[in-house]
Design a protein around this nucleic acid. Sequence first.
DNA 1: AATGAATGAGTTTTCATTCAT
DNA 2: GATGAATGAAAACTCATTCAT
Lengths: 207, 207, 207, 207
Amino acid sequence: MSSTTGEKLELILDAAYDLFGSNGFYETKISDIAHQAGIAKGTVYLYFKSKEELFMAVTRRDCEHFLGGLDTNLQNCSTMAERLLVIAKHHSMYYFERKHRTKLFFRTPNNDPELMDYMKQFMLRYMQAVEKVLTEGGVSQPVWCAESYIGMLDRIRMDILFNPEFPIEQLHERTDFVARLFLEGCNHSGDHQDQIDRDNSQEGESQ
Amino acid sequence: MSSTTGEKLELILDAAYDLFGSNGFYETKISDIAHQAGIAKGTVYLYFKSKEELFMAVTRRDCEHFLGGLDTNLQNCSTMAERLLVIAKHHSMYYFERKHRTKLFFRTPNNDPELMDYMKQFMLRYMQAVEKVLTEGGVSQPVWCAESYIGMLDRIRMDILFNPEFPIEQLHERTDFVARLFLEGCNHSGDHQDQIDRDNSQEGESQ
Amino acid sequence: MSSTTGEKLELILDAAYDLFGSNGFYETKISDIAHQAGIAKGTVYLYFKSKEELFMAVTRRDCEHFLGGLDTNLQNCSTMAERLLVIAKHHSMYYFERKHRTKLFFRTPNNDPELMDYMKQFMLRYMQAVEKVLTEGGVSQPVWCAESYIGMLDRIRMDILFNPEFPIEQLHERTDFVARLFLEGCNHSGDHQDQIDRDNSQEGESQ
Amino acid sequence: MSSTTGEKLELILDAAYDLFGSNGFYETKISDIAHQAGIAKGTVYLYFKSKEELFMAVTRRDCEHFLGGLDTNLQNCSTMAERLLVIAKHHSMYYFERKHRTKLFFRTPNNDPELMDYMKQFMLRYMQAVEKVLTEGGVSQPVWCAESYIGMLDRIRMDILFNPEFPIEQLHERTDFVARLFLEGCNHSGDHQDQIDRDNSQEGESQ
DNA sequence: AATGAATGAGTTTTCATTCAT
DNA sequence: GATGAATGAAAACTCATTCAT
């Protein structure tokens, strides 16, 4: 059964990702993970010192995967608009494809400083990747813009989380929409003249 | 000992809000809540059938409070821009003031369908409140705009959560910024030199 | 079932004394103790924070009982010779009556500093009680004499421990013998023919 | 790596003696022993069927070493008084030199009949060695005398165990004292002024 | 209504032992 | 013979919940 070095490690990480992601940290038993990985309970502890450490490893792998994929995707495009769209697609697709693993983020072990720290770093690195795109595009206040853009995208994730039937077609439209909204603001995000009209009158009102 | 009807109920809800919010659902013991409320453990079960139900009640009270406050705040303003700013202020201040209670959202009991359902409804109601403002302001695609706006605001909450030292002054600027970004898009949101300055100092932090 | 305050505490201590004493610390399960006490496992933890703490309490009760009984017995006699005999009787009878509980001393939890400390204090207090008798009797070097006397007596305990069939009649003779040996030394302790006879028969057993 | 037959056996026994002796049976892991012996865990099981058997072998080697050394030491002296002193020196020095290995005796595996039996035999053989000296010296009731003498000596071991700072100088005096006490009894053992002085200083310590 | 002692199901983790290489 | 990865039985301890008072 164990032909390759590290095979068991992968089996455990995969099983843990699946179960932590589906049921959350507290509702997942080590024995479940071992069972799903097809190994014995004790074997898990040959690779991870504790349940927390295993969760940490799963989280790390997932986050690194996310950021790595983002980098790759960003390499194939040049304009800022393209890049922002790539970011949006990556974000929404990544979590859409993993819509059944969303508990990884929302049901984490409590008060683990190492995990908190890693999550903070992850958020920072993601933000900085977006910030870089914006800075190169000449956008001012790129940090807050980046944060906001990510927030808009993450709301898609929330919608997916709370609506598992979220249709894939809508995902694409929503993604495009968010990218445009970010660039142009809500006053310009409607293609029709009447909207522009309303918008103009709105501009007048608000001053 | 019990002078007013429902007094104990409030004591329990307050203690539970405090402890669930600080430590999360799984790390909070009923006995801790009872102790903090100054009552006996068994008494909690006179008011709530289970730990989950108590968590549900705490969540419900918190969410209703949030939405009620939003309604109140929206009543005092008329233009869409004003209203959007009010929404942003409400969102950011609400969670800033409760920055030590953030586990209420991130460490919730697992797989409780009733809770999931309530959260879904809450998100919907919040979104509809924002949507109404946008619709009345003539914004097209108000649903997605509302979702996106909330997402931008919620990112502020995330930043507060992961950075408990988040300064209140920055909170106001960030709030204003988000409202403007939403209206005008990133291409128009950085026209003023002072904003550029702030952004630059922020850039420094992020490296 | 629970009529008196502290009843359960006694039940637990009695059961723990019995089982720790018979099987040693490591071979005794908390569930066994609870079962023998007729209570639930969790109840043990209402009274004792850990298995070690329970063991400590059992040891303490036993040692205090031993020293208390010694004090009581010493009150009824005046000469040093009488007192030394009382000490010997007390020591040998105490452990003879508890011959099935001897693991309490030999199979203790490892590396518990509090327990080590208490045992040290117990040995000191016992020695000092004997020392006092010797000092009042005008014996020189009472500390080392006391230690040695206790050592001689404790050897009886060892013999009982390794020979559960140890006959009670021999216990009395052995006790008398030790007291005399301590006073007079081995050169003077075999003056009577009947003692020689007994000793010869003992020699036969030991081959 | 294995140049001599039985080399590994010795490595294991040495490591096991060290660790069992320092930490006791239950607190010592086979993997620790293997690690300290510089071999693999599985290798231990090529030499010993179980942890208990290994402990048994360690105990046996230690006890045989003790008895063998005693025999050797006894060969160089002729009078009973000399021999008793040799016994006392051997006993006290043996355990003084091994003061950090005392758990070998106090934290033994529970309820192992073979071990119990061996210990019983060991005690008997030791007693008989002492008994022989006494019988040849014309002492009456040599069995009980031997037991008592050993008890006095073993108390020294206990004092060492509970007081790791036990000074070597005191050990020699105490040993001489015990031999004299055994021969002459407490009434005759304090004739010399310098001994009284020492004893007084000892009294001070015990308060 | 209020209490808090009692319960016991449930889970992490350890470690002696095995066995394929 | 030697290895060490894998196993899984076993036990301490927790804590939501109950119920007699």
